[in-house]
Structures are given as C-alpha cells and as structure tokens.
Design a protein around this nucleic acid. Structure first.
Lengths: 146, 146
DNA sequence: TATTTATTGAGATTGAATCTCAATTTCAAC
DNA sequence: GTTGAAATTGAGATTCAATCTCAATAAATA
C-alpha cells in the first residue's frame, strides 16, 4: 500500500471516518500529479476517466487531505486555491514568474534560521511560513519578445 | 494637496484618465484607513456616509490605485483580497496569528539580503516578495484559554 | 455647438466554494 | 441476515467576491 494511502486510512480511521471508493479515487488522482493543482482540475481529470464523482466530494476530500497533513493549500494570487503535496516533499518556497506564470520551488537553509530570529524578536510562536518572490524567470528574460 | 492625491492625479493624467469626484472619494476613504482593508468594507463605509458610489466603481478605482503604486494587494488566505498602503510605508512582511487573526507587520534587513541571494542562485529577476509567518501571537499565548 | 472619449451605476453574470437534504452505503450489534 | 445508527454521496441550490454589460452621463476637444 502506498504510503499516502496508509496515512490517509489511518487519519480517517482515527476520526471514525471511512475510506470510500470516492476518497480513494481522489487520493490517487491528487498524488498522480507532480505539481500544483486546483480542485476543478482534479474534478475534470476524474470525470474524463469516466469515474463519476461530485464536485462536493472533491472539495470535501481535498479538505480532509489537508487536515491529514498530506496536502497543503498554496495561494498564488489568482482567484482559486492551489494544492501541493506535503508528504515526501520537504518544505520549500516559491518563485513566481509574473510573465509566464511559471512557479519554481526552492529551499534555502538560511531562511529557516532567519524565521526563527524574526519570531524570537517579535515574541511570536511561528509554526509555518510562506515566502513568495515575484519577478521574471530566466526563460522569459531570454525571450526579449513580449 | 496631499501627496497621494498628487500622485493619483499624475498617474491618471499620464494615461489620459480623469480625476473624478468618485475617484476622489474612494482615494480619501482608502487613505483614511490605517490598516488592511477589503473592497467591500470600503464600499460600506462610503455608503454609510451617504456618499453614493457603485460597487463597480470601487473595484475599478482600487485597481487603478494598485496600478499607480499607491496600494498593494495582500492575500491572507481568506476568500477576499486585502489592500494596504504602499505610499509612506516601507516594505514589510506579516506575522499572522492563527488563533485571533491578528496581523502584525515586521521588517528585517537580512531578509532583503537573503532574497537577493536566492534570486542570484536561481537566476531569477526578483522584483517583490511576501513573507508570511503563521503561528500564535504573544497575546494569545498569554491566554491559556481557548 | 458638435464630436469624441472617458466614466458611472444598476443589475446581470461569472466562477470558486460551500451548503442542503434525501437517498445510499457501511458498520456494528444483535 | 436483520436492524438501527452513523457516515457518505451527489445533484442542485446557494453564497459571495469580483467582473462585466451597456445605456446614460459628463468632460474634454475640435
């Protein structure tokens, strides 16, 4: 059994909830993705495969996956939520290209340290953070056009 | 004339747009605020003062104020955009209390440096950034309750 | 004055997300 | 395997911020 499935099953069980076929399909589909995705995308993919699932169930299950620590909500400034995997991915932050919309992940050791420092100075119990840097990516800078 | 008004007038003029009474009211109201606000809040405040303005105009004018560099959109994870002043406020980042929703601003010199470094390493032309640290604020930690 | 262009506002529309509730499924207890 | 309690689902309604439409109006220019 894939690790995400075991975790999801356990998390559900611990709350008296069931591992249903629908939740299975949505879990599979969410973990087939290798980058950020939106709820509507996921719904669309599932329906294209003739697997019937309702919009409500997709949204509900994504919420459960977040609560179980398998997914995370990331906001990139659009009008919809994006999700990304937590399991098997160390914490990272994002570079966002304002021209092509590409999202590039990065990590930097010093950032964690800096965060600690800020929290100490501000007397804040920091638990998580997001850093987004907006700008122009290398590919777009290469293109003089547009 | 207040600096924000001069800037707005200039910015509009340079694009062949007009400084209308409605735009004036919205500018005033936006700059009376001293913290983050939402478009609907602003509309409500204006209407409470018997100044008639349409929803469409508020949204359109806020967009203009962003384009003119007077306001900035900030997302705190809710379902609506928040705006904050740019003019007269140096760049800052945010601590967000997950318990009481309080938003605390902070700045840290090292963060700017770190950003430069990351961009250099990633070959990215960074233009702006946002760092949000989520956690529990000092006040809420003081309250053992809840 | 006539013409062009920008602006406004009421209301319709969009679109993501959530909610409702009857029908269905699952599970545990008997 | 029957029964009852609880969880789950899905179709469609609803919410809500945000945007769009378009006719009426206002301002600038010729």
């Amino acid at each position: 059994m894939r690790p995400e499935e075991r975790i999801f099953r356990n998390c559900l069980a611990s709350r008296g909830l069931r591992y249903t076929p629908e939740r299975n399909i949505i879990l599979q589909e969410a973990f087939n993705r290798h980058d950020h995705f939106e709820a509507e995308d996921l719904l669309y993919s599932i329906r294209k495969k003739e697997k019937r699932t309702s919009r409500a169930t997709v949204y509900r299950t994504l919420e459960l996956l977040v609560q179980c620590g398998l997914l995370q909500v990331v906001d990139f400034g659009g009008n919809s939520h994006h999700y990304e995997h937590v399991l098997g991915h160390q914490h990272h932050d994002h570079l966002i290209c304002e021209r092509c919309g590409r999202i590039i992940e990065f990590t930097h050791r010093q950032l964690e340290k800096l965060k600690e420092k800020v929290c100490q100075e501000m007397d804040f119990d920091g638990r998580s953070h997001t850093l987004k840097i907006f700008g122009i990516c290398d590919q777009c800078r290469g293109n003089t056009k547009r």
